[in-house]
Amino acid sequence: MDVLRPGGTGPVISYREDCQSCFLCFLECPTGAIRVTPWRSFPLGKLYGRFDPEGKGGADLRPAEIF
């Protein structure tokens, strides 16, 4: 959604948070200049909350742990 916009030196991704991970820009880019990675880009928080106080459920992934 409206994530690629004209920039000074070419199209730029202005609103990273709006990427819908549809990979269409990646698929349709005529020169292969766009690469979209599937990796989760931000944490999910304490998903299991009080049911998993020690965080062993594995849902509280942080970007630093991912990349």
Partner: peptide, 12 residues
């Protein structure tokens, strides 16, 4: 899934 995590049998 939550019940497994709650019982200490996570991750899923």
């Amino acid at each position: 899934m939550v019940e497994e995590v709650r019982a200490g049998r996570g991750c899923i």
